[in-house]
Design a protein around this nucleic acid. Structure first.
Length: 505
RNA sequence: GACUGCGUAGCUCAGCCGGUAGAGCACCUGACUUUUAAUCAGGUGGUCCUGGGUUCGAUCCCCAGCGCAGUCACCA
């Protein structure tokens, strides 16, 4: 990539690049400060006020008026005018102008102004006033350098827009791009709201292993790593599901949940990052209908917390999260779009023939359920803009879900779609150890025919089921996608603090 | 992984139908001193992503590589 800061040029006299010239200018000011007996990196400073709160409490202060209210603020110098007489100081809450005039500052302190650069972090003691031009300001009595910055900030008007650099050097992006800060702060708020809701219904937050010796809980390609001390290979988990259900078996709580990272060794896209955050929850004595209610309440709580209303706009499209959400079976939705009722086909061959009529090119090895899933993905998924629970999935693609009470070829599973994206996946949990073993064995068979994503037989999980998993409903939700929707972002990387990039060589 | 596009100053971007490059901001010097992307005058700053090839000459054309983006495939 271009424009990486070079770290090995600080002391070189032969340096001629602009990078070096800019850096040298700042190093000179740093040594000027030291000449003045000023420590450019002091240990501590205690501000008393923050910018946003000051802006709010002095909202009605009229232009030209000065108070006697003493404040101490601290932040980064983002802009300066009139030889640093006016400085825009930015802290984590907002900005406030600093006004430095010889009438209210010592000559020594005034000379410190000459050593300031954009990007420096300073502390300012002074009084609140509003300038005749109407800008709320701190008239400085004393300015303290808190941290000298040695690298130039990006352009003050256009900011930093090179996406690669924004993600590789998120700290620079965050300094100059308010929208980046807003998105990541909203993410934190969303995670808090999820936690708040689940704690509120009495669910217990737990942490289960990320290093798994047996792959399970979802159909996905894993990352593999080695643990030296045990001389054993581990998978980075693709889902925490099987461990969470073990905790329900153990009766740790009526409900448990985990918010954490899953890892899938698959491609990057605007919707996919190899490590992503999911929340999963398991609730005794609930079935998938109860979980649909729960998802609607949970997401509703989060949306309201972030937006104050249940109707949001994403990419110009209005999305309404008000209950109840549409609930419709996968088979019916496919029939709505294609006129084909796949339940009429008893064999995979018949399903393949039907799919072929729809001009779908499918791997001939796919079983009936996989064909239905592909037709659904191709014809239906992208049309599900408003929140929709798609219910009753084929059992072949749902090895951990309990069979349907209505049709043995289906299971009590649903996925929730918003804006054409799957955001949640849930089942009435399969708790019959005999059937679970069969399902695992079918997965193992698929694995042996080359399906890298098929799950493994987890004997200990079956043992847990043999001790008895009470009737339980479980669900998982992708946090990143929810954040994309609720922050009107276009890309998963925008909602990750540090998205995955190819390492620089 | 495949295809397409992009890579020029610290940042945001022009430009060159092949003759070694410009602007604004930032930075430096000076002026101004109640400014708001402050203003005015002057100045510094470039491996035009990297490596090959074609050419008298390549930042520009060709090939390969690296990085990024978008689309597709797998997936949440």
């Amino acid at each position: 990539m271009k424009n990486q800061p070079k770290n090995d040029q600080g002391g070189s006299d032969t340096a001629t690049t602009n990078d070096n010239i800019l850096r040298k200018a700042k190093l000179k000011k740093l040594s000027d400060l030291e000449q003045l007996g000023i420590e450019p990196f002091p240990h501590i400073f205690k501000p008393t006020h923050q910018a946003a709160a000051l802006q709010k409490s002095y909202e009605s202060l009229v232009a030209g008026e000065e108070t006697q209210d003493k404040v101490i603020v601290a932040g980064r110098v983002m802009a300066a005018r009139n030889n640093n007489m006016f400085i825009d100081l930015m802290d984590t809450t907002g900005s406030i102008q600093i006004f430095s005039h010889k009438d209210s500052m010592s000559p020594e302190n005034m000379s410190l102004l000459d050593c300031l650069d954009l990007g420096d972090i300073i502390g300012v003691e002074g009084v609140i006033r509003r300038t005749p031009r109407g800008e709320l300001s701190v008239r400085a009595y004393k300015i303290t350098v808190l941290t000298k910055s040695l690298l130039p900030l990006p352009e003050k008007y256009h900011g930093l827009s090179d996406v690669e650099q924004r993600y590789r050097q998120r700290y620079v992006d965050l300094i100059v791009n308010e929208s980046s800060r807003d998105v990541l702060r909203a993410r934190s708020k969303i995670v808090s709201a999820v936690r708040e809701y689940l704690d509120g219904i009495g669910a217990l937050e737990v942490e289960t292993p990320i290093l798994h010796s047996i792959l399970g809980g979802a159909s996905a390609k894993p990352f593999v790593t080695t643990y030296n001390a045990l001389d054993a290979n581990f998978y980075l988990r693709v889902a925490p599901e099987l461990y969470l259900k073990r905790l329900i078996v153990g009766g740790l709580s009526d409900a448990v949940y985990e918010i954490g990272r899953n890892f899938r060794n698959e491609g990057l896209s605007i919707k996919h990052n190899p490590e992503f955050t999911a929340v999963e929850g398991y609730h005794m004595y609930m079935d998938y209908s109860d979980i649909m209610d729960l998802i609607e309440d949970l997401v509703g709580h989060v949306v309201k917390k972030v937006h104050g209303t249940l109707e949001i706009e994403y990419d110009g499209q209005k999305i309404n999260f008000a209950k109840p959400w549409k609930r419709r079976s996968m088979i019916d939705l496919v029939q709505d779009e294609t006129g084909i009722n796949f339940l009429e086909f008893d064999t995979a061959e018949q399903a393949h023939q039907a799919a072929a009529k729809l001009n779908l090119k499918l791997d001939p090895k796919l079983n009936w359920g996989q064909v239905v899933e592909q037709v659904f993905a191709d014809r239906v998924e992208h049309k599900l803009i408003q929140p929709t629970h798609v219910t009753d999935y084929p059992f072949e693609i749902s090895p951990l879900a309990k069979n349907s009470r209505l049709n043995p070829r289906l299971v009590e599973r649903f996925e929730t779609f918003v804006n054409g994206w799957e955001i949640a996946n849930a089942f009435t949990e399969l708790n019959d150890p005999r059937i679970q073993r069969e399902r695992f064995l079918q997965q193992v068979e698929q694995r042996e025919t080359g399906d890298e994503e098929a799950q493994m037989l987890d004997e200990d999980f079956i043992t847990a089921l043999e001790y008895g998993l009470p009737p339980t409903g479980g669900w998982g939700m992708g946090i990143d996608r929810l954040v994309i929707l609720l922050t009107n972002s276009q890309n998963i990387r925008e909602v990750l603090c540090f998205p995955t990039l190819r390492p620089l060589k």
